[in-house]
Design a binder for these strands. Structure first.
Lengths: 120, 120
DNA sequence: CCGGTCGTTCACACGGGGTTCACCGGAACG
DNA sequence: CGTTCCGGTGAACCCCGTGTGAACGACCGG
């Protein structure tokens, strides 16, 4: 499980502000509603920003025990997280898949179709 | 197969930064998306920088068994790697062919057409 | 009880990855 | 030169890893 951190440290990642001690996530100033698992997963990823984290490591960090073969919980929760993050901040992509390796957290501009700002 | 290395050693080669334990490659600071095979091949080559590595040795290192006669996997994956590396760092050539012998990894300035910086 | 949320699991869809094949051009060789 | 060998390259193919919607049961507050 995640090592306990001081109650008042704050993580920043792009437009995100995360208070691991308070269970709070602000996306562009607005609060996100995350479940316990979603929040734990996000914190685990953010604390390892830029690195690829394997599924089994993520599972151990957030769920607290070993990832069983065939368990898809990680995939499902990554998806739930992505949906909420993208809903809040459509212009950004945060969680990147590295097939065969795991997931990497890094705020990057999403490849939005170039509706040129001058369109129409 | 590759000998296990400490999880946090880092290989540098020109503009490349490679974390064998983390499955991550940074090219000029930006993360590259490599498949498992591509990554293994790159690591094997970088760990032998400057030396010529035969196809069969590469195959044994990355695939874990003997290279069968007529198997072109190495060629294909060298090509895939080259494409991704060149896309990320057009000014550099990393993997050099030695016909009849194998491949040699070495970051060298590529012979780019001198589009003078004053072009356009 | 009743409705809602949450975590887990399942089923199916989908795309990326690994392998193989075919074709091509260049190099080496006689 | 003509032939042969070797590596480069694009593409077809199938499988597996991942994405995704939904069902299900546990739990909780009202």
């Amino acid at each position: 499980m995640e090592a306990a951190q001081s109650q008042d440290d704050v993580l920043y990642a792009g437009e995100l502000e995360i208070r691991p001690g308070g269970g709070l996530v602000l996306a562009g100033g607005r609060a996100l509603t995350l479940s316990v698992r979603e929040f734990g997963l996000l914190v685990a990823l953010v604390r390892r920003s830029g690195r690829i984290v394997s599924r089994s490591e993520l599972y151990t960090l957030v769920w607290g025990n070993e990832l069983r073969d065939g368990d898809r919980s990680i995939d499902v929760y990554v998806h739930k997280l992505r949906v909420k993050l993208e809903t809040a901040l459509p212009a950004w992509a945060f969680i990147h898949t590295h097939v065969g390796f795991g997931y990497r957290f890094s705020p990057e501009a999403s490849h939005v179709f170039h509706n040129s700002t001058t369109s129409r």
